[in-house]
C-alpha cells in the first residue's frame, strides 16, 4: 500500500531534478526562437496606418495621438499617412519625418532622444541604476549587520548552513501540502499581537 502511494511521489521527486529543468530550458529556447523569428506576414495597409498614426500627436488637441483623435486635423493627417502608405515609397520613420516636416515637430508623440528631450529617457535609466544599487547596498548592510552579531562566529554560520542543507536533503521534493506550503505556518497575522510591542515602546 505504502509502496503504491510512494511510487508517484518518487516519480514526482525524480521529475523535478535538474535534468528536466535542462530539458525545459531547451524547449523554451526552441519555442521562443521559432516564435520570435516567425513572420506575421506583410502588414496590411490599415494596420500600417494605425501604427504610424499612434506615433503622431494630434496638432490641435492635448496629448492625444492622431490614432485616437477624431477631429478634422487628425483626419487630414490620417489621410496623408494613408496616401503615403498606399504610395509605398517611404518607410514608417520616413513618413513620420515627412509629416513632422509638414505639420511641425510638436506632432511627434515620442520625444526625440537628443537635446533636453534625452533626459526623459536618461532619467528613468539613471533611476533604475540608483534603485538597484540602493537595494544592493541595503542587502550588503543587512548582511554585515547579521555578521556583526558578536556571539555568532563563522563556525555558527556554517553550522546553520549545514543544518539547513540537511533538512532539505531529508525530505527533498516532498510535495505534502503541509511542508510544501509556501505560506508561512502562521498565515494571517491577527490584530492581537502588537499591543505588547506598543506598550514596550511607550
Amino acid at each position: 500500500m505504502t509502496s503504491l502511494m510512494a511510487a508517484p511521489k518518487r516519480w514526482n521527486r525524480a521529475l523535478k531534478k535538474w535534468p528536466s529543468w535542462v530539458v525545459m530550458v531547451f524547449v523554451v529556447v526552441a519555442l521562443v526562437a521559432v516564435g520570435a523569428t516567425r513572420d506575421g506576414g506583410p502588414q496590411s495597409a490599415g494596420d500600417r496606418v494605425d501604427s504610424i498614426s499612434r506615433r503622431l500627436a494630434c496638432p490641435v488637441c492635448d496629448g492625444e495621438s492622431v490614432f485616437e483623435s477624431r477631429n478634422n486635423a487628425s483626419d487630414s493627417i490620417r489621410s496623408e499617412i494613408t496616401a503615403q502608405v498606399s504610395e509605398g515609397r517611404l518607410g514608417d520613420d520616413a513618413i513620420i519625418e515627412f509629416i513632422a516636416g509638414r505639420f511641425g515637430a510638436q506632432v511627434l508623440l515620442v520625444p526625440r532622444s537628443s537635446g533636453v528631450e534625452a533626459l526623459v529617457w536618461a532619467i528613468p535609466a539613471a533611476a533604475l541604476v540608483v534603485a538597484v544599487a540602493g537595494l544592493a547596498m541595503a542587502f550588503r548592510r543587512w548582511r554585515d549587520e547579521a555578521r556583526a552579531y558578536p556571539d555568532a562566529t563563522a563556525a555558527d554560520f556554517d553550522l546553520v548552513a549545514t543544518a539547513l542543507a540537511e533538512s532539505h536533503s531529508e525530505q527533498p521534493g516532498s510535495d505534502q501540502p503541509e511542508s510544501d506550503q509556501p505560506v508561512p505556518i502562521q498565515p494571517e497575522s491577527g490584530n492581537d499581537g502588537y499591543r505588547s510591542d506598543e506598550a514596550g515602546q511607550e
Binding site: 494571517e188 497575522s189 499581537g193 502588537y194
Partner: peptide
C-alpha cells in the same frame, strides 16, 4: 475576509 488562524498573543510582530 479574516483568515483561519490568529497569531498568538505572545508572538509580537516587531520582535
Amino acid at each position: 475576509f479574516p483568515g483561519q488562524r490568529r497569531r498568538l498573543a505572545t508572538d509580537t510582530a516587531s520582535a
